[in-house]
């Protein structure tokens, strides 16, 4: 297979969207948190928990959309833990985030073992099927939902009073307080909803991309999303572009492995590409990015 053939094949572009979808949900989630001034390093663990929650709900007999809803609520729950510790209590967002990733991941594995003590391989579910619509027919409806999430996030952030308040709370919380708006409430809300979206991103893996839950299936995607937020300069549209570019590279490398050129190289090099690309993206964007001014700065009334 030629390199040009890869880029011209329809399955390649279908794969790009499929790979991008979970990243889009989670990147939007992280972007909302960070725009409000809270770095959420719980993302990796929240995606694991969301992947499990969505899958186990469907396995227990709930409809697929209810599975997505369960994932979202699981994310919100972990988001509220993160928010409570980092917003009113102002604890280190680094430490709490890493702690939350450890907590969510281990709680998920524990729950899996308790729920399914006897199974050797995880049971399958009936996952979302391709829509077959004239446009993007090979994608499931969850991919459309991911794209819609970007549009909604952008609209809320830039076109509504709520979005203005959210952006302001990440730039200058004292000014928001002076307007009589609840700084802590806005930040908590952003972290809760953002974490919900991260969990939905995780559930895409179990409810659409695959039809089962595996340990380690999130495999660093959360950390990649944090890099994508920086790459997107904290703007939803650019972050979407970043996710698509990234997924494009990922889909390309899988196909490159099957070419003559790729067969001569160790496969681990291809598997490491996503992480290396994320680091490269961070380096390229670091100088130009407009970081929300109050990111990682807790707000305590009456303190300057």
């Amino acid at each position: 297979m030629d390199l040009i053939d890869i880029l011209l094949s329809a399955t390649f572009w279908a794969a790009v969207l499929r790979i991008a979808s979970p990243l889009i949900f989670a990147t939007m989630g992280e972007l909302i948190c960070e725009r409000a001034g809270v770095l959420n390093l719980g993302i990796e663990g929240i995606m694991v928990a969301g992947a499990f929650a969505g899958w186990i709900a469907v396995y227990a007999g709930l409809p697929l959309w209810a599975g997505v809803g369960c994932a979202f609520l699981t994310g919100v729950m972990f988001g509220l833990i993160h928010g409570t510790l980092t917003v009113p209590f102002g604890l280190s967002q680094h430490v709490v985030g890493i702690g939350l990733t450890l907590l969510a991941t281990s709680a998920t594995y524990f729950a899996y073992r308790v729920a399914l003590p006897e199974v050797s391989s995880p049971p399958r579910i009936e996952a979302f099927q391709p829509t077959g619509w004239p446009i993007l027919g090979s994608q499931t409806v969850l991919t459309w939902a991911a794209l819609a999430t970007v549009a909604i996030t952008a609209w809320v952030l830039y076109r509504t009073p709520l979005g203005l308040a959210l952006r302001a709370v990440g730039e200058n919380p004292a000014a928001v307080e002076a307007q009589g708006l609840p700084v802590h409430g806005l930040r908590m809300g952003a972290v809760a909803v953002g974490s919900g979206l991260m969990a939905v991103g995780g559930s895409f893996l179990t409810l659409s991309a695959f039809n089962s839950f595996f340990f380690d299936m999130v495999n660093g995607r959360g950390w990649i999303c944090i890099a994508l937020v920086v790459f997107g300069a904290w703007m939803p549209g650019r972050a979407l572009l970043g996710a698509l570019l990234f997924a494009g590279f990922d889909a390309f490398q899988v196909r490159l492995q099957q070419t003559e050129l790729g067969a001569g190289l160790p496969y681990q090099l291809f598997l490491a590409m996503p992480y290396l690309l994320s680091i490269l993206a961070l380096i390229l964007m670091s100088r130009r990015a407009e970081v929300p001014a109050a990111l990682m700065t807790p707000y305590n009334k009456g303190e300057r």
């Binding site: 950390w223 990649i224 890099a227 992480y275 100088r287």
Partner: peptide, 14 residues
């Protein structure tokens, strides 16, 4: 360059 070390060190683990 001001690149956040949390993300780079995490990604390098993989």
């Amino acid at each position: 360059l001001g690149v956040d070390e949390v993300v780079t060190t995490l990604l390098l683990n993989f």
